Every structure is written in C-alpha cells, then in structure tokens.
Simulated scan of single mutants.
Amino acid sequence: MYSRVNYTLIGVFVILFSLGILYFAFWLGGKGSHDDNKIYMLRMKESISGLSKDSGVKLKGVNIGTVKEIRVNPKNIEEVEILLSIDKDIPIKEDMKGVIKMFGLTGLSYIEIEGGSNGAKSIESKDGEIPLIKSGDSLFVDAETRLKHISDKLADILDRGDKLLSDENIKNLSSVLKNTDKITAKGVDIEDKVASLMVEVNTTIKEFRVSFNKLAKGYDELALNLKRDMPPLTKSIKQTSDNIDRLSIEIEKTVKRGDYNFKKILQPSINDIEALSEELSRLTRELRQSPSDILFKSRGSRRGPGE
C-alpha cells in the first residue's frame, strides 16, 4: 500500500513539474515576442534563396533579431514579404535599408540592416500597419546589374567596331592613306624647294651685304674727300669774297677821288675770278666724264686762287 502511494505522489509531482516547465516556456516565449521584440516588414523583389525562417538579422555585424516569417505579397506577386522580429531597444531609422547577405560560401543567408544616422527619424507604424523597412540590392543583384551594364557597353563597342571596320570605311581609309602619301611626297618636294629658296635668299643677303659695305665705304671716302676738298674751296670762295669787298671799297674811294681807271682797280679781282672759274670748270668736266671719281678717286690737296 505504501509503495502504491509513493508511486502516485511521484507521478503527480512529475506531472506538475512538467506543466510548470511548459507554462514557463510559454510565458517566456510570449514575453519575448510581445515585450522584448518589435515586428518590421521588409519587401524584396529579388530572389531570397538561402534565407529561411529564424535566419539572423544583423546591424553592423551584431545580431539584433531573427526572420519570423517569409511569404509572397498577396497584393503583388513580384514581391516577397519578410517579417523581421527585432529587439525593441534597437532604433530602426528611416534611412536604413535591409539587404540579403550570405555567410561565406555556405549558401546560408541573413538580413543585414545597413545605413542609418542618429539625426534620422525612427520608423513608426502608420494606420496600424507593420513598420516597413526599405530594401536595398544585395551583392549579387549589384554585381548582376554591373555585369549587365558592362555587357551592354561591350556590345555597343563591338557594334561600333563593326560599323567602323565596314567595307566602305576601309575603302575610305585606304583612300585617305593614299592621299596622305601624295601629300607627304608633295611636302618633301616643297621642302626641297624651300631649302633651295633659302639658299638663294642667303646668297642674295650676302651679296647685298657686300654691296652695302662697298656703298658704306664709298660714302666714307666721299665724306673724306669732301672733308679734304671743301676747306680749300671754302677758303678760296672766302678770299674771292674778301677781294670783292676790297674791290668795292677801292671803287668807292676811286669814285670819291675822281679816278676812274677801272681796269687797274679790277685787275686783281678779275684774276681771282678767272682762277675760281677755271677751278669750277675743271670740276664740272671731271663730273661729266666720270661721276664715280668724286666717290672713289683720291686727289691731292688743291690750292685756292692766290695761294
């Protein structure tokens, strides 16, 4: 009888203990769901392969929640709705985005919350709906977009290359090259002519320099001749002028005395005038016979009349 009572007590204790554990588990689960976490919605149009219920949700590599549910949007079959259960103490900002990332090469995925700033507003529920987190492109979608862009660019380059290397363009290019060869040949001929012309110009310049030097030398000789010949001639003219002055004075005195023997009075001046006239006549004849002698012929000093 005692054994039966003991078994009964043990059975009751086990049942009560099991019920207590179940109650504690339900209480803990309910408290975690309603008190510690907050539900957010994430809508994505890309494939979510590798992502499953209870997959992790991370912010800067720190676990902040889990994936609670995955379903197709009944209002838009192009979208997948992902319900995220995130710690309510973690503020989710309006400038944050949810991105699917992969654990290395395992094929398992998780949700990474990117972005966010302290100055941004926190996401709040509107009209009782679940708060919506913006979605961003995953690494694979970004790589696919970039590869598509590169592929389009490459196709465009190849298409332009085909157009550039068309038969008509190749023919035109050949024509341009032929014309370039002709222009180059003409350029060489022109270069030779220019070189020859430059030689002639240099020769002309040298001849001009020689002629100019001769002219300068002749000018110097003319200056020397004039410098040498002019003083005697000037002196002779001055003496003639003085003689004329004396003649005038003598004539005036003679007139006053009543003596009119002009031949005697004028004879000295007439002699000077004849000598000067002879000198001028000789110079005129020389200029007519050889004008260059005045520049290049050396002369001895000539005496003036009366010297």
Rank of each mutant, 00 (worst) to 15 (best):
I294V: 11
E112P: 04
H149P: 03
F296V: 15
T203D: 13
S241T: 14
K163W: 06
D220T: 15
R160T: 07
D152K: 10
D189I: 05
R246W: 15
S174G: 08
E124I: 06
K235S: 13
P231G: 00
I48L: 03
S175W: 08
P291H: 01
G258V: 03
K153P: 07
G29M: 07
I64G: 04
K256N: 14
R288D: 08
G161N: 12
I237T: 05
K182T: 11
K182A: 10
D272T: 06
K263Y: 12
M102S: 07
T184Q: 11
V141T: 15
K88C: 02
T234P: 06
G61L: 03
L226G: 15
D159Q: 11
R299K: 12
L224S: 13
E250T: 13
S47M: 02
D142V: 11
S236H: 10
K101M: 11
N118I: 12
S290G: 01
I10W: 14
H34D: 10
D142G: 09
G30E: 04
R285H: 07
K53W: 01
S236C: 14
F140V: 15
L222R: 04
G104T: 03
D242K: 09
V176Q: 14
N202Q: 15
H34Y: 14
T106N: 04
D189A: 09
S117N: 01
N202L: 05
I265V: 07
F26R: 08
K256A: 12
R4K: 15
K88N: 05
L108P: 01
L51M: 00
D152R: 06
A25H: 08
A143V: 07
F140Q: 14
R43K: 12
S33D: 11
F13N: 05
I70S: 03
I15R: 06
T145Y: 09
K238F: 04
L173E: 06
R228E: 07
I111M: 00
S174Q: 14
S290R: 06
I10E: 13
I92N: 02
S85C: 05
L16S: 05
N37M: 09
Y40N: 02
R282V: 01
I270H: 09
I86E: 02
P291Y: 01
E69D: 14
S49P: 00
I294D: 12
R4A: 12
G116Y: 00
E286D: 01
L173T: 13
A25Y: 11
L197E: 03
G65H: 00
P232K: 00
L51P: 00
E81F: 06
L164V: 07
I111C: 01
V255K: 06
E81Y: 06
K193M: 08
I270S: 13
K217A: 08
P305H: 05
R146W: 05
N172Y: 09
A223E: 13
N179C: 05
L108A: 09
T284R: 15
